[in-house]
């Protein structure tokens, strides 16, 4: 679901760099082969995660306040579930 909504918007707005999931782990993960494979399949790739690089405000209200402060228009996405969470 996520890649049908936020991902397509992000593809337009964004920026390539990734975010480092678990970047501060101190030891390599030791999982069974099937759980390791599962993890590899489930975690989003860089393209799918690119929308995370947008400096989103997580509410319209926060966006309105910052838009006024910065004298910029607001571009907002509304969904039944939170577009930055579970849509």
């Amino acid at each position: 679901m996520k890649n049908l909504v936020s991902g397509s918007i992000a593809a337009l707005m964004l920026l390539a760099a990734s975010i480092g999931l678990c970047a501060d782990r101190t030891a390599p993960l030791q999982l069974s082969a099937e759980h390791a494979k599962c993890r590899e399949i489930v975690l989003p790739n860089l393209g799918e995660q690119s929308y995370r690089n947008i400096p989103w405000r997580a509410s319209v209200l926060h966006g309105i306040v910052d838009a006024q402060k910065n004298d910029k228009p607001i571009m907002f996405v509304l969904m039944n579930g939170h577009p930055l969470g579970c849509t």
Partner: peptide, 22 residues
């Protein structure tokens, strides 16, 4: 496109959540 996106304040929200209905 990066230049274009920087011209806006981006926000995302849920239409209904406990205690709030847009």
């Amino acid at each position: 496109m990066q230049k274009l996106s920087a011209m806006f304040v981006p926000a995302a929200d849920q239409i209904e959540r406990p205690g709030k209905s847009l």
